[in-house]
Simulated scan of single mutants.
Amino acid sequence: MGSAPGGPPDDPDEPDRIRRQRDTEPIPRTPRDSGPGYSEDAAYSSGPSYSDGPAYSDDAGYGDSGRGAYLPPEFSEDELSGLRTDAAGMPIGPRRVLPLEDEPSSLVARYLFPTERYRGEWKRHWIHLTTPLLIGTAATFALGYLSGFLARQDVPGLTTAAVIIWFGVMGWVAWQIGDWYFDRFILTNKRVMVVNGIITRKVGMMPLLRVTDMKYEQSPLGRMLNYGTFVLESAGQDQALREVKHLPNPNELYLRVVEEMYEPQAVEARLGKAEESTAEDGA
């Protein structure tokens, strides 16, 4: 580029001097007392921490670039219903389970070793007593009518025999009721067990680690009365227990066993929260 007529000649180094002058201009700084997140005691040597900086808010944004502040995810009431818990740490919502017993009964405690964590015990559904109760009712009516008929016929020996038979049937019914009371399905963090018998006690168990498949079946009557049959499949050939009939609340029990098999940490966390709530209430 030439110089103007009559003016001073062009300096060939002038463009480089102007560029160096522009590159070395001082950067304007904002006073420390006017910037957000700084105090008078803050020093550049230590640097401001992340907690001293401006916090994100729902209304904060980054201009027109379209990148807003972080917003927490939103969940519907239906999605949260299965996650909320009550004071005892139990889920509130459609999948509500009954609270666990704190301690095993005396009938069960003798079969648990010290390091085993007790999860619950269940008696069989009352439908298990249908056959004995029906037999006892039918025997009462039939033998009562027979005793009255024989008494009118003046046959004392046969009347006495009918009464003895009735007492025998009632004794068998009472035995079945007692056997139902002592029959328990037990769940721990290590195994499932079935304990039954009044005089001769029978204990069958299956480790949870060996359970390869588990299902429960409900007939139409079972769905109405809330009972079902559990079928446990094991990796071994000989199975101490495979089919357990007439268990109450089969859906709840199924969820408990599956959770104990696949999410034991969740069970421990829920029980720990329940213990903390109980301790706080007692304090």
Score class of each variant (00 low, 15 high):
G168T: 10
G236L: 11
Y56W: 15
V267F: 02
G2T: 14
H246W: 12
H246M: 10
L143W: 00
S76L: 00
G178N: 14
G61W: 02
R67E: 11
P73I: 05
I165N: 06
L255C: 06
Y70T: 13
Q176V: 03
F113A: 12
V163S: 04
Q176D: 06
D16W: 08
A60I: 09
D41K: 03
P8E: 08
E79D: 10
W175C: 11
G120T: 02
D102K: 14
E280L: 13
E260R: 07
H128Q: 13
E74T: 15
S46R: 12
G89N: 03
W126N: 12
E243F: 04
G47F: 08
G82E: 15
T159F: 11
V203G: 04
Y50K: 11
F167C: 10
M205G: 03
T200H: 06
A235W: 00
Q265P: 02
V244P: 00
R124F: 03
N189T: 04
P132F: 01
D23F: 08
D64V: 03
K215L: 09
D64M: 09
H125R: 00
G171A: 08
A162Y: 00
R22F: 08
R19F: 07
F230E: 00
G6F: 02
I198N: 12
D16R: 08
A4I: 05
A138K: 06
G6Y: 00
F167K: 09
A174P: 00
R124V: 02
M206N: 14
M1H: 07
F149C: 08
G7H: 01
T278M: 13
Y44E: 09
A161G: 10
V257I: 00
M206I: 07
I164E: 03
M170V: 07
W180Y: 05
W175P: 10
R32D: 11
Y227K: 00
A88R: 04
L187W: 04
T229K: 05
D78M: 10
D16A: 15
Q153T: 10
Y227M: 03
V108L: 01
L146C: 13
E268R: 02
G168L: 07
L133Y: 10
A87D: 12
Y145D: 15
M214K: 00
S34R: 15
L271P: 01
A151S: 05
A138C: 01
R270D: 01
R124L: 09
Y44A: 14
V211W: 05
P48S: 14
R29V: 13
L134F: 08
H128W: 10
A142I: 04
S81F: 14
M206F: 07
A174S: 07
S57D: 09
E252G: 04
W122H: 06
Y56L: 12
I92A: 13
R22A: 10
V97Q: 10
R242Q: 07
A174F: 03
M90H: 14
A69F: 03
P5S: 05
L209G: 15
E276I: 12
A174Q: 05
M206K: 04
T212D: 06
L71V: 15
Y227C: 01
R152S: 12
